[in-house]
Design a protein around this nucleic acid. Sequence first.
DNA 1: TTGTAAGCGTTATCAG
DNA 2: CTGATAACGCTTACAA
Lengths: 353, 353
Amino acid sequence: MGSSVSKDDHVVTMRDVAKAAGVSIKTVSNVVNDYEFVSDKTRAKVNEAIERLGYVMNVSARNLRRGRTGIIGLSIPDLQMPYFAQLSSLVIEEAKKVGLRVIVEPTLYSREGEFDALLGSQQTMMDGLIYSPLQLGVADIEDIKLEYPMVLVGERIFTDRFDHIATENVEGAKRATQYLLQIGCKRVAVLGTHPGEDIGSASLRLQGYKEALEEAGVDFDPRLEAPVGMWHRTDGVEAMNHLLDSGAQPDGVVALNDMLAAGAMHAIQMRGLRVPDDISVVGFDNSDDSQYLSPALTSISPGLEAVARLSVRVLNERIAGQHPLGNDTDAAVFRKVSSTLVVRDSTRQPAVA
Amino acid sequence: MGSSVSKDDHVVTMRDVAKAAGVSIKTVSNVVNDYEFVSDKTRAKVNEAIERLGYVMNVSARNLRRGRTGIIGLSIPDLQMPYFAQLSSLVIEEAKKVGLRVIVEPTLYSREGEFDALLGSQQTMMDGLIYSPLQLGVADIEDIKLEYPMVLVGERIFTDRFDHIATENVEGAKRATQYLLQIGCKRVAVLGTHPGEDIGSASLRLQGYKEALEEAGVDFDPRLEAPVGMWHRTDGVEAMNHLLDSGAQPDGVVALNDMLAAGAMHAIQMRGLRVPDDISVVGFDNSDDSQYLSPALTSISPGLEAVARLSVRVLNERIAGQHPLGNDTDAAVFRKVSSTLVVRDSTRQPAVA
DNA sequence: TTGTAAGCGTTATCAG
DNA sequence: CTGATAACGCTTACAA
């Protein structure tokens, strides 16, 4: 036989175990579910029977009875983007800790996919959903009716109808810019903007850059803004070359994500300039491989661990019918996870004071 | 209310719909399941009632009754590795096409995790498993008893007890090496070996390299073998620098994965040498970002699309109790997916003949 | 501490 | 083409 499905005549059920152990079904159930008040003797008897008969719980039956499945959904745009792969990995890990399994649903940049994840045929297959939309806006979900609790992740939608765990896009970029200013950069460029786009990470991060400049009393120089098409490495190369050719003379670069930063460093180095000696570079996302670049990339970490931990916790509490995060009200939770600057070798050391 | 769970007094069931539509429960079931022989009039009536009452199927009840859950597991070492993120993404996509959902289980490089994925408490929660182990060997699973069909993916374990979709590690590296030879490289280095490791991708790929050399009548020069610790970008930088310093004078490099290749290109370029003019570089895995490197990386594509498609198909056929891949026997399937060389800009153009 | 019995919401069987 | 009715395997009052 190719596969090894056990094709026994009869599937072993609790009833069989009960009979074999000479106890009632209820007792078997108690043992299986670690109910406290079972005598050791009985427990041993039952466990022996379970072992002997090769009994395994039928999860579907339990789910039907309990009205829960122990599964949550995680809807993200693209599992192949390092940012979302990491988020997924962390969410799965957190969920496991509280006995939940995760079905990951990549929506692949389509509105339809995002709606589907929300209202798809599996509404009763999941106890809840962690939702990170890219296409949908507030209007789309404002008066949607869901069968289960949902936690929003990201900064795409703001509403008080749902619990929401947000990241610090503005503050993160601001922090990066401030750091470059602080270590003595005079002409800090921002690389990777999406002109004309009013919502999304790019505009939020640009805003943070501008805020830092303003608070430092530095005028915004449009020549130091390098727009790109996508956020890939080549776009970073291209934009950085443009910046270098334009005579804008940057001595620091805030790249709006790590791939752009990698490309920027490449372009800089290809000209015989050095990172960080001639130009310091900061990335964003602190993706796994930022530490493996040459030089290792200083980057803003959005704190995905906390995002994963909080969103799973809130969702789990909603599923259990509790108020989230120990609140005393039922109101939707909004929480912003702090970003941190991870300093590596792509930025000069701070000037000694 | 923070979340929007519909807490109606009574969950709408098929019975309610049947009553509302003035038909029997079975008829509702027939409509919901797209049973062919239902009169249009009846179907319309039922659908109207479903809409009006806001009925949604209880998946757990269906699962219990049908004895299937419509969920398969995918066990991989690490969701954050591009290779596995891509595999997962593709498997999810393929599974969706045949009405299956996927629970991804990253085993995080531990034997325990890999056993867990196999025998975990959810044995009846999944209809089948796609399994890509890293730690376990044949001995570990040789006489394991599973509740469901399992399809192996990778080249870690070879057994005829389970269906197996393999990739071309040997052939892929051979193809890469042959290509470099063909375009005129005289001293082709292999970068990223793991000396002393007898099983796993590194040794298989090294083997392919050696086979190509041998068939071309080129002696293997140990000075052209660059071992590394890990398969990260920095390891590629380091190993390439070592190669360059050693006087081995490579004019072509087969990197054992794309990250190593990226690092190698970086090291080469930092010395003022050019890719591909001075040294041609081929990577392995054809990861998403190989096309975004500078220059865009020529790479071996392991054909993950086909791996995903085949493994889902075989698993699905097993679940349905059919012979896999249209075979006339029940024997375990073994299929090797062809790798292909994706030529980009990191290799010289073939010399004109 | 353990047993009894009534569902959970669907699907399948088999008549009508 | 449609309708009654019996499972599917488990949990959970309630009783003992």
